[in-house]
């Protein structure tokens, strides 16, 4: 049982995307967050975006630790405040791609107000929400998404509250890209994150994932492998599904797929439209006019496309 850790770190395809010096991480055996981070890292590589221009923001909790493990500019904020911090970064420097990676307790419980308002503004952010139906870091309490009747440490006799259906929530609030997968569907997660990174506007990706230590154990649902098999057997792929039909019952069917993908001006585009009417064509934000910013954006898009093409060509070549 000897592994040359230094060599492994160096050779791993994740080096350059993850802070290898911080491994191993704190997540439990069978937790889905690691798989999601793998999918995220893969999506970043394939998307062709400049890793320098990527910022990852997390809140508090198990998923909140993602920011500390990814090798990009990263901020680990206070509980629930990942989205407003990300909003601040995006508005301070619109060139950046800002990803919020956090848990459902953080994003929809304590940070629920920020979630719906960022969606309402169509703020150009990618929000990846790890939904494991529990507050893992504090010992398995009930969350806004815990299914009815599920047991949590603070609902020891079964949950009698009604849960949020997150795709429906963010759809109602105005999100322009919405997808849901399980941590089993890592390939789809990768693809969805790639699409969301290229999408202009508020993107929301919910990933259902097992919390082995708390949610599964307390509800006697077995271990991580059992849960992933449950996902395999009980997910229903329905692209474009009406988000009103995406509610999750305890151990019931889980609708997965890409539900929403539409075009609407982002917050910054709306600001530009208003200000250019007011100030005229020489309107500047942070010293740059709209045509200047558009030219920069176009140039960056071309670079991204070139990098993406190179990655795809490499893969195609490998498969021939």
């Amino acid at each position: 049982m000897t592994t040359d850790i230094g060599k492994f770190k160096h050779d791993s395809p994740m080096s350059g995307t993850l802070r290898m010096e911080r491994m191993p991480h704190i997540w439990c055996p069978g937790c889905g967050i690691g798989s999601e981070v793998n999918a995220f890292a893969e999506a970043i590589k394939r998307s062709g975006i400049d890793p320098k221009k990527l910022v990852v923001v997390s809140g508090i909790g198990c998923t909140g630790r993602v920011a500390g493990y990814v090798d990009f500019d990263s901020i680990h904020t206070t509980h629930g405040r990942a989205i407003p911090v990300a909003t601040g970064i995006k508005l301070a420097n619109p060139e950046l791609t800002v990803v919020v990676f956090s848990g459902e307790g953080d994003l929809t419980g304590i940070g629920g107000n920020h979630l719906i308002h960022a969606a309402r503004r169509n703020m150009d952010l990618v929000v990846i929400c790890n939904n494991n139906f529990t507050y893992g870091m504090t010992g398995g309490q009930v969350t806004p998404t815990t299914p009815h009747s599920a047991i949590a440490s603070t609902t020891p006799y079964g949950n009698y509250e009604y849960p949020f259906s997150l795709p429906f929530l963010v759809d109602a609030a105005g999100a322009t890209y919405i997808a849901r997968w399980t941590s089993m569907d890592v390939r789809n997660v990768t693809q969805s994150i790639e699409e969301a990174l290229a999408h202009k506007g508020f993107s929301f990706i919910e990933i259902i994932s097992p919390c082995t230590t708390l949610y599964l154990r307390r509800n006697r649902l077995g271990d991580g492998v059992d849960m992933l098999q449950h996902y395999q057997e009980n997910t229903v792929l329905k692209h474009g599904c009406d988000t009103r039909e995406t509610a999750i019952d305890f151990q019931g069917k889980i609708v997965i797929g890409k539900f929403v993908d539409k075009v609407k001006p982002t917050y910054l585009e709306a600001v530009d439209q208003c200000c250019v009417k007011l100030v005229g064509d020489d309107y500047q934000l942070y010293g740059k006019t709209i045509p200047e910013r558009e030219a920069e954006e176009k140039a960056e898009k071309e670079k991204v496309a070139a990098r993406r093409a190179a990655v795809l060509a490499e893969q195609t070549e490998a498969n021939e």
Partner: peptide, 25 residues
């Protein structure tokens, strides 16, 4: 004329927490 690919698996046993995902799937 697709070619059958072959891969080489590298395992870091030190970090492994034995979840069994790789084996199962």
């Amino acid at each position: 004329n697709l070619k059958q690919l072959h891969g080489k698996v590298y395992i870091n046993e030190t970090w492994c927490k034995g979840c069994g995902f790789c084996v199962q799937f």
